[in-house]
Design a protein around this nucleic acid. Structure first.
Lengths: 344, 344
DNA sequence: CTGAAAGCGCTAACAA
DNA sequence: TTGTTAGCGCTTTCAG
């Protein structure tokens, strides 16, 4: 004659009582287990529906020692690159019957660590991580053994996680080479957060191209995006380096540089040829349209999530797996190429 | 002498045993409860740290009947409007000690429903929802009583949720009026998903403005974004309606229209004046720059989340609360306004 | 101040 | 085929 203290939550016990079966039978019906007479099962299901029963996943997870949830940690959700990756991960998680707990590090290693701990407390079954830092392994020491992690965008130095990346160095080299082919000599590479793998690799690719052409590298790399101001552009990129072309090493840099250039009165692609590492919506709609290295944004998240679920199901062996996606240099006008009206 | 079956997970019992105290004492220390000798508590904390103990939030939630998690359901993560809202919600959740379970409906009511059920099973403490549908209440009947819901972008007709919106009708009316002030007569309003509140309200605002000017409304609204093709633009917007100006009613429509116009050889803002409901990064960097109605994207998510947490804490009373954020008509060039070099 | 025992909702053993 | 009994990891009575 016990009554649930909270009469708004129906438990499996309520269902069982109402259906006149035992708890375990109700449980079996719920989970479509064998060894339940179909008629009994039907009865139970009917009661469940009638009562609006919803299994408590917390209780299930506690028992099963898993949560049917994966975590995802990203640095910055406003970045369309990130947003699309999240979208892809969320979709694949859904098809695998998992939910996604989304956390944001803001690119800060301490926050990242705290978020990971929080996710671990949630008993996540897997983690997709866009690391806030790539030089130092800020993660491994707090991971419970057996938790699968897939990194994307950046690998973590010294850690043994699966990772989805692009050939940063080669892509940057090719992009730089393209600018060189146009005849520019004082190409300036603009980047931010040099300690990040993507940044340093892309800069390295740039250097290789410049070196091969027998030219000096002109790098303009800020410790943090907030330092990428119009004044800085004017001082460093133009006054110091006398830029005759610019390559920006990621989306944020591109955005800030586009704005900054306008403020200091330099027209992108007209006064100064421009190439962006990271393509985005509308790059093709600007005038002049922006030449860019395109990363397969959705594939990034999709590959990472697929790899994670494969690992979780034990279908992928135990060795570390790296997926390297390919990029595409999308030639438009801002680099100096002639106008083309092809659809991007 | 019982040994955890899974030796990789340390429980509070392990901590208690190691510290030589009872389970409850360890629990008290964990939760900073009073009535624990400071020395005892310190000892427990030391052991926790040494063992790398992490409380199991699933177990906590099961007991406490709450999960310290909120759910968020959005239609489309690639939309920067949505991405920024998610970012804001996630940040505010974090400061309130909650995690965010993110789900995506793809604008489909059935999926939305399934996702809500899944979140309920997770015992979420609150829900931020950008409804997939606004005409029909697809939600209320499955919500457990006591679960707080805040809607944003669209209210749900017939449901009693708190909601964060903008003055859709008035903003659209003002925007249309601005085009009228330029002297355009055959202004075409392009929209998608007419059953959505935002769409119908904005179209209504447009109609009001046209009517006041003594002009016929020329609406071009597709059932679904996928129908907004270049061919359709050519046929409906230009051949049928003889557009001499265009107003697009949301971001997706703007994107598709910009691309479509180019494909059919009409230059935005040059051959055809253009106004976008929804501002975005780079709208100010295009040539001509795009005049747009700007919604406060981050505030959208922030207000929704703040409202939700207030409700959850019982600080907001029980009556329904509506927050109406203000928009701004950002005048740039595509509407026909003279070039201005002000920073957006 | 501290501890023993009960139980959150569910599922895995082990009967019956 | 069904039911009974434990117990997942934690917190909450209620005694010491």
């Amino acid at each position: 004659m016990r009554r649930p203290k909270d009469l708004n939550t129906i438990t499996l016990a309520d269902v069982a009582r109402e259906a006149g079966v035992s708890l375990k039978t109700a449980s079996r019906a719920l989970n479509d287990e064998p060894y339940v007479k179909e008629k009994t099962a039907a009865k139970v299901r009917e009661v469940m529906k009638r009562l609006g029963y919803r299994p408590n996943e917390l209780a299930r997870g506690l028992k099963a020692r898993k949560s049917v949830a994966i975590g995802m940690i990203v640095p910055n959700l406003s970045d369309p690159f990130t947003a699309n990756a999240v979208k892809a991960v969320q979709e694949i998680a859904r098809t695998n019957g998992h939910i996604v707990i989304l956390a944001s590090s803001g690119g800060d290693a301490e926050i990242e660590r705290a978020e990971i701990l929080s996710l671990i407390g949630r008993q996540i079954d897997g983690l997709v991580l866009a690391p806030a830092e790539s030089r130092r392994d800020n993660v491994s020491d707090i991971l419970p053994p057996g938790l699968h992690v897939v990194t994307y965008d950046q690998p973590i130095h010294g850690a043994e996680f699966d990772c989805v990346t692009i050939p940063n160095r080669r892509s940057a080299k090719e992009a730089t080479q393209h600018l060189l082919d146009h005849g520019y000599k004082r190409i300036v590479a603009i980047g931010a957060r040099p300690s990040l793998y993507t940044c340093s690799e892309r800069i390295a690719g740039y250097r290789e191209a410049m070196k091969r052409a027998g030219l000096d590298s002109r790098t303009a790399v800020v410790e943090h995006e907030s330092l990428l101001t119009p004044q800085w552009l004017s001082d460093v990129v133009f006054d110091d380096h006398k830029a005759d072309a610019i390559i920006c090493m990621n989306w944020v840099c591109t955005m800030l540089t586009l704005r900054g250039l306008r403020q200091i009165g330099r027209r992108v692609g007209v006064d100064v040829p421009f190439l962006s590492f990271d393509d985005f919506d509308l790059a093709d709609m600007m005038s002049p349209s922006l030449t860019a290295v395109r990363q397969p944004v959705e594939a990034f998240g999709a590959e990472a999530a697929n790899l994670l679920f494969k690992k979780m199901k034990g279908e992928a062996g135990n060795e570390r797996r790296s997926v390297i996606l390919s990029t595409e240099l999308v030639l438009r006008e801002s680099c100096g190429c002639p106008h083309s009206s092809s659809t991007a």
